[in-house]
Amino acid sequence: MSSKYSGGPTETERCIESLLAVFQRYAGRDGNATSLSKKEFLTFMNTELASFTKNQKDPGVLDRMMKKLDMNNDGQLDFGEFLNLIGGLAQACHVQVTSSPTSSGPQRP
C-alpha cells in the first residue's frame, strides 16, 4: 500500500498494513488463510493481547468473545470480524484515554 500523494505510505496506511500482516500471521495455521479458527484466535489473543488475557479472571471470556465476534456463526473469524475486535478494543482505549481526568487526549509520538 503506497500513497500516490507522498513518497511513502502514510501513518494510517502503515497501520492498515500492520493489521493485515498480523491477521495473516495467525490465519491459515489450521488450513484456511482467510479466517481465524478458534485455536488461531486463542493463539492471537494470548500472543498479541497477552496483557488483556492474563488479567482476565474469567476463563470463559475468550470463548464468549469469539462467539460474539463470529457474526455468521461459522466457527471462524474472517478479516471483517477480526476488525470488529480491533475496533472495539481501540474504542475502549479511546474512551479510557479521553475520560482520564489528567488527560488532554492522546499524545503524539
Rank of each mutant, 00 (worst) to 15 (best):
Gln24Ile: 12
Ser18Tyr: 09
Ser6Cys: 12
Gln24Leu: 13
Gly88His: 07
Val97Arg: 08
Ile16Gly: 01
Asp63Gln: 15
Met45Glu: 05
Ser100Asn: 09
Gln76His: 10
Asn73Pro: 06
Leu83Cys: 13
Glu11Gly: 07
Gly105Asp: 03
Lys38Met: 09
Gly75Arg: 05
Asn32Met: 08
Thr34His: 05
Ser18Phe: 04
Pro109Glu: 02
Ala21Cys: 13
Ala92Asp: 14
Leu89Asp: 05
Thr102Leu: 03
Ser100Phe: 00
Gly88Phe: 05
Leu20Trp: 01
Met66Trp: 03
Ser6Trp: 04
Ser3Val: 12
Val95Gln: 10
Ser100Met: 01
Thr10Arg: 15
Cys15Val: 15
Gln91Tyr: 14
Gln96Trp: 00
Asp70Asn: 00
Phe79Val: 02
Leu83Ser: 04
Ala27Lys: 00
Leu62Phe: 06
Gln24Pro: 14
Glu40Ser: 00
Ser3Gly: 10
Ser99Asn: 04
Leu69Val: 08
Ala90Ser: 11
Ser103Lys: 10
Ser18Met: 10
Ser99Ile: 00
Asp63Asn: 08
Tyr26Ile: 06
Arg25Val: 04
Thr34Lys: 09
Gly8Val: 15
Pro101Gly: 07
Val22Met: 05
Ala27Thr: 01
Gln107Phe: 01
Glu17Ile: 14
Thr53Ser: 06
Gly105Cys: 03
Leu83Val: 07
Pro59Gln: 13
Arg108Cys: 12
Phe52Asp: 07
Phe79Ile: 01
Met65Arg: 01
Val95Leu: 05
Asp63Met: 01
Ser3Lys: 14
Glu17Pro: 07
Glu40Asn: 10
Gly80Thr: 14
Tyr26Ala: 05
Met65His: 02
Val61Leu: 15
Arg25Phe: 12
Thr10Ala: 10
Ser2His: 11
Pro109Met: 05
Val95Ala: 07
Thr53Gly: 00
Ser2Asn: 15
Met66Leu: 13
Ala21Thr: 15
Met1Gln: 06
Ala50Cys: 12
Gly7Pro: 02
Leu77Thr: 06
Arg14Ser: 13
Asp63Tyr: 03
Asn84Val: 14
Ser35Glu: 07
Glu81Tyr: 09
Thr10Glu: 14
Pro109Gln: 05
Leu42Trp: 03
Ser99Val: 02
Met45His: 02
Thr102Ile: 03
Arg25Gly: 10
Thr43Glu: 15
Ala90Asp: 09
Phe23Asp: 00
Lys57Trp: 02
Asn72Pro: 13
Asp70Ile: 10
Gly31Phe: 12
Lys4Ser: 07
Thr43Asp: 11
Ser6His: 13
Asn32Asp: 12
Asp78Glu: 04
Glu13Tyr: 02
Asp70Met: 04
Pro106Thr: 02
Lys38Trp: 03
Glu40Thr: 08
Gln91Ser: 05
Gly80Leu: 12
Met1Thr: 07
Gln76Met: 12
Leu20Asp: 09
Gly31Thr: 11
Tyr5Lys: 15
Gly60Val: 03
Leu19Val: 11
Ser37Cys: 08
Pro101His: 01
Ser6Glu: 13
Lys54Ser: 11
Asn46Cys: 08
